[in-house]
Amino acid sequence: MSPSPWKVFGALVRRDVHVVSRELPFFLLRTTLQPIMFTFVFGYLLPRMGFVQRGYTGALLPGVLGVSLAFASVQAVALPMVADFGWTLEIEDRLLAPVPTWVIALEKVIAGTVQGVIAALFVLPVARLIMGPIAGLDFAHFGVVVGMTLLGAFTFSAFGLLLGTAIRGEQIGLMFGLIVAPMIFFGCAYYPWKALAAAPLVQMLVLVNPLVYVSEGMRGALTPSLPHMNLAMVTAALVLLSAIFMALGLRTFDKRAVS
């Protein structure tokens, strides 16, 4: 008798918990150093120099958390998967498990989501420490914070599944240069989307960027009194994007798993 898919799912989770918990410090360093350094420059140095207003930190903090959780999620899934399918072939022992291949892909996405949330939880106190008191920061809507964090991390984790299975090992540098870097700059992480009204064309174009919805979602959850995109729209966009990424990612995963 084959074991139930959920039992196998549980075993896959235990494997990832075992491996990831050992690698956690390196993982956090790799994925959060960039947003933390950004926080230091734009949330500490520039306000002190008087180049940006002190109120800027209220717009910056949710965005920095959005970047952290999005890119921790995408990297947690995509990087090992490129290696797994490209040269180490280590994932083969899981592809031989008596479950449909989508179970293995889904587990990777869930594990990536959790890692994204951990990265955000790590960055939050560090950023708060660097920037000092932040005007408008409000944890009253705790449920919204949790919901947005999970949804944003899941969306980018699913995006990681798609990237990790669609991209070949030799293209990984290209992926960061052409996809990840523009996404960060035009992801409304370091400025609110509403403020882009100053450049209306850019404001429309950035709407194709999934990071915009994560940043704005975090804004709506953490600094609800400051300008942010409507949360219903953010939620709809993230649900739609994660559905698209999952559907495409599961297809490309299956193609790599069964040639």
């Binding site: 074991p3 139930s4 196998v8 075993a11 896959l12 494997r15 075992h18 022992d93 498990a97 008596p98």
Partner: peptide, 11 residues
């Protein structure tokens, strides 16, 4: 652990 996890993937 390779063996134990592989066994776990088979329930």
């Amino acid at each position: 652990q390779n063996l134990l996890f592989h066994a776990a993937y088979f329930g």
